[in-house]
Amino acid sequence: MLKFIIKRLAVAVPTLLVLITISFFLMQAAPGSPFTGERNLPPEILKNIEAKYNLDKPVWQQYFLYLGNLAKGDLGPSFKYRDYTVNDLLEQSFPVSLKIGAIAFIFTVIIGVSIGTIAALKQNTILDYIIMALAMTGVVLPSFVIAPLLVMIFSITLQWLPAGGWNEGTWEYLILPVTAMAIMYMASIARIQRSSMIEVLNSNYIRTARAKGLPWRTIILRHSLRPSLLPVVSYLGPAFVGIITGSVVVETVFGLPGIGQHFVNGALNRDYSLVLGLTIIIGSLTILFTAIVDILYAVIDPKIRYQ
């Protein structure tokens, strides 16, 4: 088991390095510079600015400088937000995305698994159809339609909840963004859970358990739920990373100060250092979660380990 974990994590380092390298050179190759604007800067001013950010050095030298600083945990200054370093910006924005993401994630899993299970138990009844139709709607409706709809209903018409803002994450500011974010993944998880639960319920050992006359509650909670969660678990890795990074839409609509907004703005502003920093954070997260899910899977299902 330990060997498996070590092996899994050993892949992470080169992966990250490849990711950094690709992103770094991709941005170097991109047209446009962080310092172009409506007014073309006089060359001597441009020269001063480039010198400040080491952009006057050869590309490979910039690359190793960056890696060197990265090893020290320094992501460099932001090119666009001149009062901040990338570390400052991430320190401020990451907890925001993490908070919304984590809450949305918990809700997603609890509600998704519950309604998926209910639908499976009431298979082919009206309830099942309603739940599944709703879930399908959640899957196919883009979040940039859901989010403004929520704002229109709950903030403008009913005036129950704020239309946006963060306000240090007080609950009333969290409800709408979390809902918007959770809907899509909740729907996916409900669908996955439903079909895997049906499969489990049809399996021989559950039939045996039922034949033995065990009460339903015991059968479901003790014997069915755990094995039926396997496919859901495999979906959690991508879902979690997706929720955290996927805040792009929700953060834009609700004006939240998280990493999603930074990423899009960063790419548009050619804020190389900020985008690289974010890529590294998100890359590490993705790698970490894929690894955790793999390990979790190996724990639940020993067959995986020997493949």
């Binding site: 990074t245 548009l268 985008v275």
Partner: peptide
């Protein structure tokens, strides 16, 4: 390795820049 790449982000990068 590719599977643990944050691809969406690369796509956004590509699309904005090229």
């Amino acid at each position: 390795i590719l599977q643990s790449f944050p691809f969406m982000f690369l796509v956004i990068l590509l699309m904005t820049m090229f």
